[in-house]
Nucleic acid binder design. Structure first.
Length: 949
RNA sequence: AGGCGCGUAGCUCAGUUGGUUAGAGCGCUACCUUGACAUGGUAGAGGUCGUUGGUUCGACUCCAAUCGCGCCUACCA
């Protein structure tokens, strides 16, 4: 074995072997099944840190359950990501100076499929690099045939039940992408703008009203001005007419208590029902009033094109829209209208004003409320059982508080606009005839058959596609074969847990719950584990524009500074930021990023996965865990060096491996490490079952480093290298050495699959374990019979003895390796026995030259002192010890003990404490006081003695 | 405006139903190239747990208020 662990030499080789041998395929036998659905990444996307984290957690759970013997499936697949993917390809076309309409629908879609073929393997390749044990044989894609059938099936069933309908309403319109988007795809951010105060003259010549607006250009579509009916200033004017400036139209003053807040602005609100959600609601309440209903289009006046420019007038509209503004972009129109109002003396004032601006999450364009025909899912009937599923505990959120977020949204949920005016996605299975009738069906043929329409009858399919999340919502059952009633569906639905970050609770989790209950009659998963977001070292969100993105693959493989710079500054939306990013990157990674390997990355994710907390990704941590890999690697080297070709007391397949072949002797160290191992197994299992990956990682780290390596390996040396030690003792030590390591590897495998497999292959045969792969070995379970409290107590004595001597040496500047003579005073029978029995451990680890027990009344010569319980461990000062240093050391320790004694005495002298605290707690304090006092007296006497010298 | 979360060592974070001297890693100091490992070993320094009150025999932990930070949801034209 190499001296240093090199992940590259092994990771990809092992992954390939696992995949080729079908180790990821769920086994067919077994009762318990365990299943996780991967949140399907964008098919043409690439892996980011969030994926890395998310998939590490899932793979850890999956590998754990697979080893536990469950019938385990991790379902892989990718998402077609409608708008996102279409935009990528449109950008490619742009580079060729083309638009999608130049190609036409079919050619454009063909082009996207080509792009998918080209880049679609990227993300699944990257998932493999992470070690994800996904069942690739059954990989699915949201637009493959099976899933498309599921989508149609769901659409048709919902339509036939009246839960999908088509309607003309205001939607969130993205004027850049020319599509409707759902409420969730609109992100509002505070921006600085203005509030324009405009005068609308009364037609009776009695003055004017002042309306305040942030969007003056929409005045062209006004149908009224609303005031609060209780507002004394305007009460008497309700019903009067105003002249809408620049248009010559007349609009009424109406009363609307619900919408108009007299305290805000001027208390007069212009009502533009086709371009504002609130105004639309006002219009719905007032549309029957004659002053509105008699207006053109009943007052519902759209003034925009799909680009959010001022539209032209239709026939019969006369000059509804003043010709002057036609064709102007909304912001140009705003400028012009403000100018014209000012010229007409109708502009009262302009104020600075902060407002929330809605933008499309993909395009960044300012979203326009726009009147269009769209398809909707009637959501309330679906939401109700989905809420109940969480209330009743059928679905549990971890951490629990996310259920509040879920309820909050589900209880206020609006109908879901599912149609998108793009080309890439599931085409809506609806056909229209020339009369405007709608036929919904699986195909045109089916529709014709069902409605007795012969082939000459003209039908055209709806141009729109479905929201990407419509197909994602079906993912937990569509991937398993639904609507067919497959074995996989029976085996794995409902799934066990969904693992995701909170940002898609609404987009995805809630919708899967609704659709799962609706179509499977059962929740899609029983638990939802919500993890935090990965941020950069400063706590900032990672983003291309900030230039602080880390690529998990770069952490695995390493990257040079030059390549990192290139990556961070190329293809930027805002190239002017490149300089700053370069500077910042050079500062943070002057030598690029070293290669840490997948296991170290995974261990880092696990170790940082405290519940419900975002992660500031700290390079120091991953470096530490790379070192941990190296530690494990080198521990193995040591073990191999000592067990290979030696008798480890392990049987053969014939004799049975676990049975010792010959007489064995287990040392204290053997019993101790076995006991500690059982407790570590317990701790790990509890942690994983409770989604505390940080605790699980910590348990392994501490056991491996602080117990197995720091103590046990060291303790094995005096046994294995001693000529006095019996063969039985050596055999016992070798057996323990190798078998503890073998267990530890299985325990660690779910988090660090590669290094554990590599090492296990070498260690397992020697440990007497057979199997092709660690992946399919049983997960270690704690054996109660090996928990040995006596050994732990005895070992604590040994450790304290050794630490005491090391502390003296450290404090006195004595080289750790220098052998020192040791005297023991105030010894009990047990002390004497232990000192005798474990002499070889003490000599080796504390480098003691001699150990002599003093007679009961002999206090020995002037010495440096350490306490082991009541026993004094003495190192004579003669020739070795710096008197002043020892005085200082003792004084410090005495001060600490004195503080402790004072504190406890005070506590115990408080009658309230003694009366009211539980007896056990009081007794504990009393014991502690007694111990501290004894130690204090002992050290004090020692100090006095040394001072007298 | 409402909701959620966070504030513990220089940094990144643990701290289970209130009860040992509040822990770990990184960083720092000193010593050590000892036959697994310098991606290492040994010893050590470093915290009045954001602040203020309260409950309690006892508070990092529970309650209230307050300051600071972050996020989510809904928004007044």
């Amino acid at each position: 074995m190499d001296k240093t662990y090199d992940p590259h030499a092994i990771e990809q080789r092992w992954y390939q072997t696992w995949e080729e041998r079908g180790y990821f395929t769920p086994k067919t036998a077994g009762d318990e099944s365990y299943c996780i659905m991967i949140p399907p990444p964008n098919v043409t996307g690439s892996l980011h840190m969030g994926h890395g984290f998310n998939n590490t957690i899932m793979d850890t759970l999956i590998r754990y359950h697979r080893m536990k013997g469950d019938k385990t499936l991790w379902q892989p697949g990718t998402d077609h990501a409608g708008i996102a993917t279409q935009m990528v390809v449109e950008r490619q076309l742009e580079a060729e100076d083309k638009k999608r309409h130049d190609l036409g629908r079919d050619a454009f879609i063909e082009r996207i499929w080509e792009w998918k073929a080209e880049s679609g393997g990227n993300i699944t390749r990257q998932l493999r690099r992470l070690g994800s044990s996904l069942d690739w044989e059954h990989e699915r894609f949201t637009m493959d045939d099976g899933l498309s059938d599921a989508v149609k099936e769901v659409f048709i069933r919902l339509y036939e039940e009246g839960l999908i309908y088509r309607g003309k309403r205001l939607v969130n319109w993205d004027p850049k992408l020319h599509t409707a988007v759902s409420d969730l795809e609109v992100l509002s951010e505070e921006e600085y703008g203005h509030m324009w105060h405009m005068r609308y003259p009364l037609t009776n010549g009695q003055g004017h009203l002042i309306v305040a607006t942030t969007r003056p250009e929409t005045m062209l579509g006004d149908c009224a001005v609303a005031v609060n009916p209780n507002d004394e200033r305007y009460k008497h004017m309700i019903g009067e007419l105003l002249e809408l400036p620049l248009t010559g139209r007349r609009i009424p003053i109406i009363a609307d208590e619900e919408h108009v807040d007299p305290e805000f602005g001027t208390g007069c609100v212009k009502i533009t029902p086709a371009h504002d959600f609130n105004d639309y609601a006002v219009w719905q309440r007032h549309r029957d009033e004659i002053n509105i209903s008699e207006q053109i289009h009943g007052g519902l006046i759209n003034i925009f094109t799909v680009d959010a420019a001022i539209r032209d007038n239709d026939e019969n509209e006369d000059e509804l829209i003043p010709t002057k503004y036609i064709g102007m972009d909304r912001y140009d129109a705003r400028k012009q209208i403000v100018t014209d109002l000012e010229a007409a003396g109708l502009l009262e004032k302009i104020e600075d004003h902060k407002l929330m601006v809605p933008r499309g999450d993909r395009s960044g364009a300012v979203i326009e409320p726009f009147l269009t025909d769209q398809w909707y899912v009637k959501i309330a009937p679906l939401a109700k059982p989905a809420i109940e599923a969480v209330e009743s505990g059928k679905i549990r959120f971890v951490p629990d508080n996310w259920k509040n977020t879920y309820y909050e949204w589900m209880r206020n949920i609006q109908d879901w606009c599912i149609s998108r005016q793009i080309w890439w996605g599931h085409r809506i299975p609806a056909w229209y005839d020339d009369e405007g009738n709608v036929y919904v069906g699986r195909s045109e043929t089916e529709v014709r058959q069902r409605h007795n329409l012969d082939d000459s009858y003209p039908l055209r399919q709806d141009e729109d596609v479905l929201d990407t999340w419509f197909s994602s919502a079906l993912w937990p059952f569509s991937t398993l074969g639904w609507p067919e009633n497959t074995e996989r569906l029976k085996d794995f639905y409902p799934t066990s847990v969904l693992v995701t970050a909170f940002d898609i609770i609404f987009f995805w989790v809630a919708r899967m719950i609704m659709m799962g209950i609706k179509f499977m009659g059962e929740v899609p998963f029983h638990e939802v584990y919500i993890h935090g977001l990965i941020r950069d070292g400063h706590g900032d969100k990672m983003s291309k524009s900030k230039g602080n993105v880390l690529d998990p693959i770069d952490l695995i493989d390493g990257i040079t500074l030059e390549d990192l710079l290139e990556k961070r500054t190329s293809g930027m939306m805002q190239p002017q930021l490149a300089k700053k990013i370069e500077k910042q990157t050079r500062k943070e990674f002057p030598d690029g990023i070293p290669s840490f390997g997948t296991d170290a990355l995974r261990f880092t994710f696990a170790a940082l996965a405290a519940t419900g907390r975002d992660i500031k990704f700290d390079l120091g941590r991953i470096e530490g865990y790379r070192n941990f890999c190296n530690k494990l690697w080198n521990a193995t080297r040591y073990v191999m060096m000592n067990v290979e070709g030696e008798d480890c007391g392990v049987g053969t397949p014939k004799t049975g491996y676990s049975q010792p072949t010959a007489e064995l002797e287990r040392s204290l160290a053997d019993r101790w490490i076995l006991s500690r191992l059982q407790k570590t197994k317990k701790a790990f299992t509890e942690a994983i079952e409770g989604y505390r990956f940080d605790h699980a990682a910590q348990a392994i780290y501490e056991f491996t480093w602080n117990e197995y390596c720091d103590w046990y390996l060291e303790l094995s040396k005096p046994v294995l290298n001693s000529e006095q030690a019996s063969e039985a003792a050596k055999r016992g030590t070798r057996r323990t050495l190798v078998r503890v390591l073998e267990s530890l590897l299985r325990l660690t495998h779910p988090i660090m699959p590669f290094i554990t497999e590599e090492i296990w292959q070498r260690v397992a045969p020697i440990a007497g374990v057979t199997g092709e792969t660690i992946m399919h070995q049983p997960f270690p379970t704690a054996r109660q019979s090996l928990i040995d409290e006596d050994a732990e107590t005895e070992m604590a004595w040994v450790m304290q003895f050794i630490l005491g001597i090391r502390q003296i040496k450290g404090g006195m500047n004595i080289a750790p390796g220098k052998p020192v003579p040791v005297l023991l005073a105030n010894t009990s029978e047990t002390d004497k026995e232990l000192a005798q029995k474990h002499r070889h451990f003490l000599d080796f680890l504390a480098r003691t030259e001699s150990i002599e027990v003093l007679a009961p009344d002999d206090h020995g010569p002037e010495s440096a002192t350490a306490l082991v319980g009541e026993m004094k461990v003495l190192i004579p000062l003669a020739g070795l010890i710096d008197k002043d240093a020892e005085i200082k050391r003792l004084e410090k320790e005495i001060a600490r003990l004195q503080g402790e004694v004072d504190r406890i005495e005070k506590k115990l002298s408080n009658p309230n404490f003694v009366d009211k605290a539980p007896e056990a707690v009081v007794q504990k304090e009393r014991d502690k006081l007694a111990d501290s006092k004894k130690a204090l007296e002992s050290l004090q006497a020692q100090l006095d003695k040394i001072r007298q010298l």
